[in-house]
Design a protein around this nucleic acid. Structure first.
Lengths: 322, 322
DNA sequence: AACGCTCCCGTGAACGTTCACGGCGTGGCG
DNA sequence: CGCCACGCCGTGAACGTTCACGGGAGCGTT
């Protein structure tokens, strides 16, 4: 029936041996021109396709890593993914991409199947470390934006306190005193909110004008109008991410208000809106490259990067919106 | 030295046989609880990691496809990729993503290495079919937005004439007569330019107001100012893609001009700008899903999709910019 | 004529895992 | 006591390819 066509089938069809077929297909030399052509014809005729597994077994020269992303359509993750892809290509690696839709179930089912396909995993997870450990079949794991404990794991740390501080400094220097924030809509406040509070306190300002926003453009617009209704005297805002900031920007312009806006992420996207978005930027290329580099060290058993080498600093990126 | 740790190493370390180790690691049953734990400990101790090749050889149950994209940072391709990822996940497939940076060299080097890693290839190529045939090691290939000839290949066709026609109809109905176009900057005009000309001619309008634009926001802004300088009486424009359209929109607003703009692609991104971009939309989800489905049929040897089932129709998507 | 070299080509072995089978001990039942 | 069933474990074989080696034919040189 639908048996697989092996190199032996091609060999007997062409009247030669395995090895000769192998030589013909891999441009090895030590083969006559005519025989080579005959073998190639036979292979095409039979629809022969070498088994990547058998080849990988005997010549284990290709490594591939899994890249786990919560939502590829979110431009931030797209940028990280593109950076990781580029870094991996430079090493000659293959990257298998998984989109978990920010769901723990999807993460689990991804992990289930990932172990037997890749040599290391890099990305974003909501799963607990215990669960990661359990389902990951012993391969190296690099967590982005999250702490780790087991030695098999490693993590890229995102450090934003200074960047947010600069943003608030900038707003204060421009004369703003009543500065609000649009945080995410989850139950517990984000890291960014904490950084914002610290920065405000350092200026003796009270960080009490906060609203939660769904992570979308409309969510940002919505949250801004709510915040403005409750706190009409706000003159500037800082947001959880650029997407929300863009929504806020739109809402402000539509209501004819002059409002300074600073986002977070540093997306390219921020340059297409008008005014271009001032933002606390993360170097997504660095994040991707670091993650891949760290995976490389973990796999090779080299001294892994650590401490300061593994943190990505957020920095204020001045454009037009503040 | 840096020899690979095999199942046999674990076996002798735990004082059992291969098979028992295999059972322990795969939750197979037929194994004592204590022995299982001992094996697991030994495996962790040694840092054992099963070879995906050996496993794949004996149990060939996982299929994976290659997705080749010219530029992941271009939101259009991101959307296609996300759709393909989703469709593949539904089938339990793995997707290896390659970004070729729109370069023929990168396409070649990608192909070089792709054959031994995936069971089918889906995506965008500039390479000639002969070259594809040569470097693709006999695996099925699905070309997006491009014709094919060999039977091993298949292609998803993008049909935009009607959509562009609707766009021009819409502009004409709104009273516009002097309608320009911002095409891409390549030597030969694009398909979209042809469609545009046909639509204009159908209205007895002359499609002579055309400028070439680099595919970026700035490129679009730039091209628009050039076009407006040469043709000051233009009241509406159609663009090669949404990115260019967004640039044009910005340039128009900054110069205080009231200009109707219609883009092409239907990106989500078009909703974040203000005014939201009216555009001739392509169903990226359908493109991705179709490509994966077709790859599935090719691999299974089933009757492949053909004719009308393989075309994606562009349709006018009215938002605010026209 | 013997030797060596080059050009082709074929044969065992190995890669690391799982499958199919068989075996051994223990306990229960007739 | 004999038999079978069951739980646990080990041994050959197989998956499909490449590597290392060996060998024969043809030709030129000594």
């Amino acid at each position: 029936m639908s048996q697989r066509i092996t190199i032996n089938d091609v060999a007997s069809a062409a009247g030669v041996s395995r090895q000769t077929v192998s030589r013909a297909l891999n441009d090895k030399g030590e083969i006559d021109g005519d025989t080579k052509q005959r073998v190639l014809d036979a292979a095409k005729e039979l629809g022969y396709r070498p088994s990547r597994f058998a080849r990988g077994l005997v010549r284990p020269d290709t490594t591939s890593i899994g890249l786990v992303i919560p939502d590829l359509l979110n431009p931030f993750f797209t940028e990280v993914a593109a950076a990781a892809l580029e870094a991996a290509r430079a090493k000659g690696w293959h990257v298998v991409v998984y989109d978990t839709a920010d769901s723990v179930d999807e993460e689990l089912s991804t992990l289930q199947v990932i172990g037997s396909q890749v040599d290391a995993v890099v990305g974003y997870f909501n799963l607990s470390e215990t669960q990661l450990d359990q389902h990951t079949h012993g391969i190296p794991v690099v967590l982005i934006g999250r702490e780790h404990h087991a030695t098999r794991f490693s993590s890229i740390r995102i450090e934003g306190a200074q960047g947010v501080r600069s943003a608030v400094d900038h707003l204060v220097a421009a004369g703003h005193r009543r500065i609000g924030m649009l945080d995410h809509a989850h139950a517990e406040p984000s890291d960014k909110h904490q950084w914002f509070c610290d920065a405000m306190n350092a200026h003796g300002l009270s960080p009490d004008k906060v609203a939660g926003a769904v992570q979308s453009v409309d969510g940002g617009a919505d949250a801004l109008t709510r915040l403005l209704k409750a706190q009409p005297d706000v003159t500037a805002i800082f947001t959880f991410n650029d997407i929300i900031a863009i929504g806020a920007l739109r809402a402000a312009r539509r209501s004819g208000r002059d409002l300074a806006v600073i986002g977070f992420d540093g997306l390219q996207l921020g340059t297409v809106v008008d005014p271009a978005l001032t933002t606390v930027a993360l170097d997504t290329r660095k994040i991707g490259a670091l993650a891949v580099e760290q995976a490389a060290r973990l796999m090779a058993g080299d001294e892994p990067l650590s401490g300061e080498d593994l943190v990505v600093q957020a920095v204020l990126l001045l454009r037009e919106s503040a």
